[in-house]
Every structure is written in C-alpha cells, then in structure tokens.
C-alpha cells in the first residue's frame, strides 16, 4: 500500500491504483480517476457510481454488475456502454472501492 497524490490530494492506493480508504474518496477525485482511463463522467455515470458508494457503505462489499442492474436499476448493457471493456473493475476504480475478485 502506498500513498499517491491524485489531483493534489494524498490518498492511499494499492498496487493497481485502487483507493483503499473509503473516506478518502471525493467526487473531484472520481472525475480525475475517470479522466485517467478515458472516461468523462455524465449523469448516467454518476448514477452508477453513487449506487456503488451507497451500497458499499451498507454492505462492505463492492456491488457486482448484476447487483447494480437488479438493485440499482441500471441495465448491464448500459454499464458496458458507460464503462467499456471492464465495467466492474472500472466502476470500482472510479468509485474508490476494492475491485471485484476471484479465488485463484
């Protein structure tokens, strides 16, 4: 775990640049993180990111795409359009949450 300075703010990140402290995230930071991976945040992006942030606060786990779709009401197809290629990973990265993980 290291401390990186993003948009002028020192934050704790892991080896892949995912924020490790929930409370260090800000909306300004999210915009900067998104821009870094070529995404300009629109209202549709924010709806997904806010769902992820709120859901993590109550459950302590990053929501899966299926959960964002079923509970958050944003179709998976749309999530792929908003965060192309790897939506689950990209959303977690921008929302300052741990990335989804496998077992081996």
């Amino acid at each position: 775990m290291t401390v990186a300075t993003i948009a002028g703010t020192p934050v704790h990140v892991d080896g892949e640049g995912f924020l490790t402290e929930y409370d260090e995230w800000t909306e300004a930071l999210a915009q900067h993180l998104a821009a870094g991976i070529g995404i300009e945040l629109t209202d549709a992006h924010w709806k997904a990111l806010r769902f992820l942030r709120d859901d993590f606060r109550t459950r302590g786990e990053t929501a899966t795409l299926r959960r964002v779709s079923t509970v958050g009401g944003i179709p998976i197809k749309e999530l792929f359009a908003l965060f192309p290629g790897k939506p689950a990973k990209k959303m977690a990265y921008i929302a300052g949450l741990p990335k989804p993980h496998g077992c081996v």
């Binding site: 790897k86 990973k89 993980h101 496998g102 077992c103 081996v104």
Partner: peptide, 15 residues
C-alpha cells in the same frame, strides 16, 4: 467473466 483463468497474483504466476 473474470479478467483471467487465475486472478490472484501468486497463483497466476505459478499456474
């Protein structure tokens, strides 16, 4: 649906 067959660093490196 995962980023690879192995997603944990040490298992990925070994396997």
């Amino acid at each position: 649906p995962l980023p690879g067959a192995f997603t944990k660093p040490i298992a990925a490196e070994r396997l």
